[in-house]
């Protein structure tokens, strides 16, 4: 099933083109790495899919509907760029942060009620943060905060998860366990994942699809074919990170 479909999507900012004629389909079960150099339009593309930005032209469908007509936001999990750059003195507990996302499903009740609280606990346990519900989010390490934000994205039991450079500022060991967690969610839970990353090394291990962007969609297909493609050699030649994850 196609969860996301983009047809001829272009976007310009103050007249400068950011995205040109993007055709892209994301199917259920995909673990898609969205890669490309800085300024290639990766974040813009995800924001267009989520309805946060209107494309200059082209069509976007999410679960078969344009974002403006889509209302089942609980089907989508999103971890934005720099999510872990939390104000260390923001007085929100981990439970409060995770519970926020339940508003996507129920505007009025949010995280109130026994069932909602159980869902929050379950999401925290999924990411290995079960004992941290009462902790202040600002007191956690970057890696722990990252897991909390994944829990927030998972608490509504979404069918597709978008992550925008989620491992920025997180140490290598934590990154490895984080990618393991994503791989498990994709394999075991059937969660569709779209991951914006500079870490080309992840392409070699966990993902099954790659979309390489540089204003235009340079490559979209199987990850193994990508590693043999000219787009891959271009990226390596440009010095993008190639990190091997042996674990």
């Amino acid at each position: 099933m196609d969860l996301v479909a983009l047809r001829g999507v272009s976007f310009a900012y103050s007249g400068a083109p950011v995205l040109l004629e993007i055709d892209l389909v994301i199917r259920e079960g995909d673990f898609l790495a969205l890669i490309g150099p800085n300024g290639s339009g990766k974040t813009t593309l995800v924001k267009i899919i989520l309805g946060l930005i209107e494309p200059s032209s082209g069509e976007v469908e999410i679960f078969g509907r344009p974002p403006a007509e889509f209302s089942e936001w609980g089907k989508i999990g999103y971890v934005p760029q720099k999510a872990t750059h939390v104000d260390p003195y923001f007085p929100a507990s981990v439970e409060e942060v995770v519970g926020m996302a339940l508003l996507a499903r129920n505007r009025r009740r949010g995280a109130r009620g026994g069932q909602a609280r159980a869902e929050v606990r379950r999401a925290l346990e999924t990411v290995g943060m079960g004992g941290f519900g009462k902790a202040s989010i600002g007191r956690l390490s970057g890696g722990q905060q990252q897991r909390v934000f994944i829990a927030r994205a998972l608490v509504t039991s979404p069918r597709i998860l978008f992550l925008d450079e989620p491992t920025t500022g997180v140490d290598a060991e934590t990154q490895a366990s984080f990618y393991d967690l994503l791989g498990r969610l994709n394999r075991d839970e059937g969660l569709t994942i779209v991951l914006i990353t500079h870490d080309i090394g992840i392409v070699t291990k966990h993902v099954n699809r790659v979309a390489c962007l540089n204003q235009r969609l340079v490559y979209h297909g199987d990850h193994e074919d990508f590693c043999r493609s000219a787009a891959f050699r271009d990226m390596i030649g440009r010095g993008d990170h190639l990190i091997s994850h042996e674990h």
Binding site: W73, Y78, V79, P80, A83, F90, M100, A101, L103, A104
Partner: peptide, 12 residues
């Protein structure tokens, strides 16, 4: 207040 962009992505 906590995360404006994620709130928008949740349809708020």
């Amino acid at each position: 207040t906590f995360d404006r962009e994620s709130a928008r992505a949740a349809g708020i």
